[in-house]
Design a binder for these strands. Sequence first.
DNA 1: CCCGTAGCCTACTGATGAGTAGGTACGGGA
DNA 2: TCCCGTACCTACTCATCAGTAGGCTACGGG
Lengths: 225, 225
Amino acid sequence: MSVDEQRRPARVKRLPRDVRERQILDAAVRVFSQHGYHSASMDEISDVAGVSKPMIYAYLGHKEDLFAACIRREATLLMEAIAAGVRAELAPDMQLWHGLRAFFRFVGAQRESWRVLHRQATSQGGPFSEELLAMRGRAINLVDALLVRSATSRGLDETATKSTEALAAALVGAGESLADWWLDHPDVPEKVVASWLMNLVWMGLGDLVDGTVWVPTPEAGEPQP
Amino acid sequence: MSVDEQRRPARVKRLPRDVRERQILDAAVRVFSQHGYHSASMDEISDVAGVSKPMIYAYLGHKEDLFAACIRREATLLMEAIAAGVRAELAPDMQLWHGLRAFFRFVGAQRESWRVLHRQATSQGGPFSEELLAMRGRAINLVDALLVRSATSRGLDETATKSTEALAAALVGAGESLADWWLDHPDVPEKVVASWLMNLVWMGLGDLVDGTVWVPTPEAGEPQP
DNA sequence: CCCGTAGCCTACTGATGAGTAGGTACGGGA
DNA sequence: TCCCGTACCTACTCATCAGTAGGCTACGGG
């Protein structure tokens, strides 16, 4: 009980609206990530947030609105984290590398956010899944643009163009799946996980056979011990 | 209404138990795939199956049992389909190639099964997610074994061994994600989708730059026009 | 000191849906 | 013919929530 009370914000009175909204969203992300959309109850969210249920309805609206707000907030944070890692002036492989690292850093730091985004939102068929699918589509587009830029630096035929979007989808899926795997193996450092995926997508599995690997070029802003 | 009636089995009386069980499972897979576990109601399932609700409880048990039964049946079908395509005497790349093709064929033919397996089961935190995670783990192990065999054919160091499981997870995720993408782009032939993924995982994205591609060797049972 | 308003609550309603009680109908064996 | 078991149903109970009605309290400005 004392543990639970530590997890709840001390019941403070008369806080300004935006503070309460943040508390409610934090609680909602946590509860949604634990139970999923349908099993999460507004009562539990209000309890965890340390406010009463009508406050949620007053500030964030109905359950679907609340969920959509969670998705929007967390997805925006994720995309910003990734975008911050990717600088357009870099070579395609380094862009991908920094994007991957930023992604895994986010997942490692915000596990609950990640669960909500990946597990819950994708599965529910409701009106919010659009919210999430749109966000996922943005991620795919980001990767797609990267691939297209890589490809157009050389000659590129029609079929390759069509396939980049599919490849981007596959790549995003690989990242999601590997992130889940990583949650079950937290002892592996983030950089190592990122480099595995980087090698897979950039060099292919051929390196398992012939031993070639991709390594980041030191001059590109990686501090080297 | 006539359309709906066509989708429901004509209300036949006094069928043997195993027939009814199959009808119920078919209906359950359809309804679960459309609404997800929590939103799917036993009433709708019984309605679609053309039986009354107590029949479901008598034959398949409670809602969780029913869902687990769906997962088990569909997952077994999927694994069997993949295993049927992979023959152990082939080279690793050809094994992967045939496995991928069998996988995409299954997804194309059994869309509802796939939705239940991928979207619904993974997301619910309930007791059945274990059922599904176990099955997913089996798929990962299958791929992992393939990678290990590929790697041990050459010298292989410690870190590479650790990473194969992660790579397998990434690969399975890439397949899942690409399968979802394919559901939204059904005009692309199954073989083409499979070859995209095969190239990604075997050759890496490097081919976008230098244009090398993996092609199946004709002698391995692929009819070549 | 009074009033408006923003913050906040307890205690309800109403719908939905899981699960069941208790039956009827039909067929096969004694 | 009478049982008995299997197939099958209608019509409930009961718990769980989403969502709300209505009111109470503190603060700030006039």
